[in-house]
Design a protein around this nucleic acid. Structure first.
Lengths: 165, 165
DNA sequence: TATTAGTGGAACCGACTTGGTTACAGAGAA
DNA sequence: TTCTCTGTAACCAAGTCGGTTCCACTAATA
C-alpha cells in the first residue's frame, strides 16, 4: 500500500501558504480539508517541523511557514516525510550468498544504478515549489479574498477554514 | 519496509543472462544465490513471466530469457514486479473535503506533478539494461568460463550454480 | 487563578503488505 | 513409473499505515 503522508504534507503546506494571515492554521482546520483526524495531521506536521519547514504553536496561535513557499520544493517535503534513514528509494535483499559472485556484488552494483534513478526522481521533485502549486489554486484564493473577514463565514459547509483570530 | 522484489528480480535476470547454456536455471539455483526460499523466487519469476521477459519450464529444462538481455531495461523489471494497477508511484489521500477548494482539487494537481516525477524516475530506469549490469560481472564470468564443465564442480560452497544439464 | 484552546505523544486497533515456510497437485522428461 | 521441478494455496510473524481515544502540558485569556 502506498503511503499518503507525502500528498497530505503537500496539502498542508499549500493551505498554509494559501490562507490569509487572519486564518488560524490548526491541526483541526487542516484535518477538515484533508478529511481525516487531527492527530494524523499533527504526526505529519511533526515531520515538517523537524525538517525546519514550519513552526507550530500551542494555544491560540496557528502554525506558520518558516521558509517562503517559493523556497520549499516537493523534494523538501518528500525528504521530510517519506525517506528512510539511509535515503533509499528501493529496498535491497540483504544476506545474499557471498559464495556466488553475483550474490556477493549485486547490492553494490544496484546501489549505484538505483541511486541514479533516485536522483532523477529527486531532481524532478526539486523543480516544483509549493508556491507554484499554490498558483494553481489562485482562482479560489481570489474568491476567498473577496469574501472578506465577515463574508467568509457564509462559506459553510466548510466552517473550520473560516475561523479567524 | 521497502520491498526487495525489484532487486531480487534484477538479480534473477542477471544470473539468467550471465550463466552459460549448460547451467540449468532452476528456482532453487536462484534461491541459493539470493539466499532465500525457492518459492520466493517462483513468485517473482511469475511476475517476470507474466510480463513476457522469461519462460519457465517444469521438469528438466531451466528457465530462459525471452527478450535479449540488451532489450530488458530496469524499467521493464520495475514495472513487472513493483507497479500497482494504476501505475502510481505515490499514494494519494482519497476522500479529501470537496467543500474546500484545495481539498477538492489537490489530487488533480498532484497527479500532474507527481506524474512528471514518476516519468523522470522511469526514464532513468529505462536507460539501464540487464546486459549493462551483466558486464559489471564479466571478471567473474571469465573466471567461471575458464573452469569448464568439470572444473566448475570445484566451486563449492556454492553447489547449485554448478549443476549442469 | 481558573478557564479554554490547542499541541504532543502514548497506546491501541484493524487492515494490509511482505518475506518466509510447508505442503501438495500437476507437468514433463527419463 | 519415477524423478525433478513448477505453480499455487495456506499459513505465519513482523512491520506499516491510517485511524481513534486519551491525557499531560503549554500558553493566552477572562
Amino acid at each position: 500500500m502506498l503511503s499518503s503522508r507525502f500528498p497530505v504534507a503537500v496539502q498542508i503546506l499549500i493551505i498554509m501558504a494559501w490562507c490569509p494571515d487572519n486564518v488560524k492554521i490548526t491541526s483541526e482546520l487542516l484535518a477538515t480539508s484533508v478529511n481525516t483526524n487531527p492527530v494524523i495531521i499533527r504526526r505529519i506536521m511533526a515531520y515538517l517541523k523537524n525538517q525546519g519547514l514550519i513552526t507550530t504553536a500551542s494555544s491560540i496561535d496557528g502554525a506558520k511557514l518558516i521558509k517562503a513557499a517559493e523556497d520549499i520544493t516537493l523534494l523538501d517535503v518528500y525528504k521530510a516525510v517519506e525517506l528512510t534513514a539511509d535515503n533509499q528509494l528501493f529496498g535491497l535483499h540483504e544476506n545474499t550468498n557471498p559464495h556466488c559472485p553475483i550474490g556477493k556484488h549485486i547490492n553494490t552494483v544496484l546501489k549505484t544504478h538505483l541511486g541514479e534513478a533516485r536522483r532523477a526522481l529527486e531532481n524532478s521533485l526539486s523543480e516544483i515549489s509549493i508556491s507554484e502549486l499554490t498558483k494553481e489554486f489562485s482562482p479560489f484564493a481570489e474568491f476567498y479574498n473577496n469574501l472578506g473577514l465577515d463574508g467568509a463565514k457564509k462559506l459553510a459547509p466548510f466552517p473550520p477554514l473560516l475561523e479567524t483570530k
